[in-house]
Simulated scan of single mutants.
Amino acid sequence: MKKTIIAGAAGAILALGAGSSLAAAPADWSKVAAKDITLFYPGVSPLEWIQKGTEHGGARALKKGETCAGCHDEEAADMGKKMVSGQKIEPTPIAGKAASIPVKVQAAHDGSNLYLRFSWKQPAASGAPKMDEKNPVKIAFMLESGGKVALADESGCWASCHLDSRTMPGAADTKTKYVKEASLADGRYYDLHQWRSGENKGYDGYVADKRVMEGGSALVSAEGKQDGDNWTVVFTRKFTGGEGDVALEAGKTYNFGFAIHDDNAHGRFHHVSLGYKLGIDAKADVTAAKQ
Rank of each mutant, 00 (worst) to 15 (best):
E48P: 06
K175F: 01
Y276C: 00
G215V: 05
M79H: 13
A76W: 06
G53P: 02
T174S: 10
R268P: 03
D36Y: 00
D173R: 08
E154R: 09
L116F: 12
G111C: 09
N200D: 02
K104T: 10
I101V: 14
S145F: 06
I6G: 01
I13N: 02
T240P: 01
A95C: 00
A107V: 07
L278K: 09
P136G: 02
K2S: 06
T167P: 05
A208Y: 03
K63W: 05
S183P: 10
M131F: 04
K35W: 07
A259F: 05
V212T: 15
D186M: 05
I94Q: 01
K252V: 00
G215M: 06
V105D: 10
A182M: 05
S112C: 04
D204Q: 02
M79N: 11
H261R: 10
A77S: 14
A77L: 12
K177S: 15
K277M: 02
A59K: 06
P169H: 09
G70K: 01
K138H: 10
T174G: 04
S155V: 14
A218E: 11
Q106G: 06
V212R: 13
H109E: 10
R188F: 00
E249N: 06
P91Y: 11
N135H: 01
C68D: 11
A24C: 00
D173H: 03
L62I: 12
L151M: 07
V105R: 07
K121L: 11
G228V: 03
K290W: 07
S119G: 07
S155M: 15
G215L: 07
R60I: 13
G53M: 07
M1L: 12
K148A: 09
A288G: 01
W120H: 09
K82M: 15
K277A: 03
V105Y: 02
A284G: 00
A208G: 10
Y203G: 03
A18V: 02
Y41H: 11
G215H: 07
V246K: 12
L114F: 09
L219N: 00
K148V: 11
L47Y: 14
T4H: 07
E223C: 08
L192R: 14
L274F: 14
K225M: 08
L16S: 10
N230M: 09
G146H: 02
A259Q: 13
V149S: 01
S21I: 08
K104D: 10
D36K: 14
K180T: 15
F239N: 05
S112V: 07
E133Y: 10
D153I: 04
Y254H: 09
A124Q: 05
D110S: 10
S85C: 09
A265W: 01
